[in-house]
Design a binder for these strands. Structure first.
Lengths: 130, 130
DNA sequence: CCCATAGTTCGGATTTTACGAACTATAGAA
DNA sequence: TTCTATAGTTCGTAAAATCCGAACTATGGG
């Protein structure tokens, strides 16, 4: 019992902006996606057990991939014991022109500044000031 | 007691992509922001008590504006009894070129399809199946 | 001072997220 | 076939984020 559910890949017309933004608003997922979008072939999940100097528990990583997949950002395919993941950026570029490029570019602008600049924030999603 | 806290506006270099994406991944906030970005002068909060055929409780609305503000997307200024809100899109365009335009454009692509097309999803952020 | 309007804060219910433990699935070796 | 290792998923629960009504603050005008 407790069988494994089949992978869900929404068709491109069911992909929503809100979904994309939500998924990419997480720094770990954004980093995974950037890596996938920037690399030629497929990448397996366990390549990301360590990312941006942070180690991610594999159950968490699995859920990040599920989120990326179900938002339509990534296609995952089982090959033997591993999962091959590729970004669906060409399709998304068709549906939402410029969106992915602008987001990836913004991320790299931001990390460029962080690398050079002084202050370093661990999780910048909420820039909360006391 | 229980005084009102001052409004927080991060300086532009503290604005993060993750923060922007997170805030705009909510359909209500995205609609508010689109309206603000598209209109000339300032808008007061209560203009949005009803948006996209949905009525928003004012405590919720207040928190949405707080989120927009603290992510750096919106500037709010008290004028008498009301709050004047303007989008900070020029500053953000400087820091993350093309980001806001691509997001707003993607939203309008999506709603254009929704308007014409058949199926209508109430909250498309999670396209969860079965 | 009293009232009306605009927005905020509080508190509790609901929802979402994170992660360790236990599991499934597949390949290869014995 | 059975054993073992590897890759990833599911479950359970604890922690965090979100939603919204009630009560509040702040401002302006009789």
């Amino acid at each position: 019992m407790n069988v494994m559910r089949p992978l869900i890949h929404p068709s491109i017309e069911d992909v929503s902006v809100e979904g994309i933004l939500h998924v990419l608003s997480d720094p770990v997922r954004a980093a995974i996606y950037a890596e996938l979008a920037g690399s030629e072939g497929a990448q397996i999940c366990s390549n990301f057990l360590r990312i941006r100097d942070r180690s991610i528990p594999k159950s968490t990583l699995s859920q990040h991939f599920q989120a990326l997949r179900e938002a339509g950002l990534v296609r995952s395919e089982r090959r033997g014991v591993e999962m091959h993941n590729t970004s669906r950026c060409a399709e998304i570029q068709q549906r939402f022109p410029g969106l992915i490029a602008a987001i990836l570019n913004a991320h790299s602008v931001q990390s460029a500044v962080r690398t050079r600049g002084a202050k370093h924030k661990r999780d910048a999603r909420k820039t909360k000031v006391g």
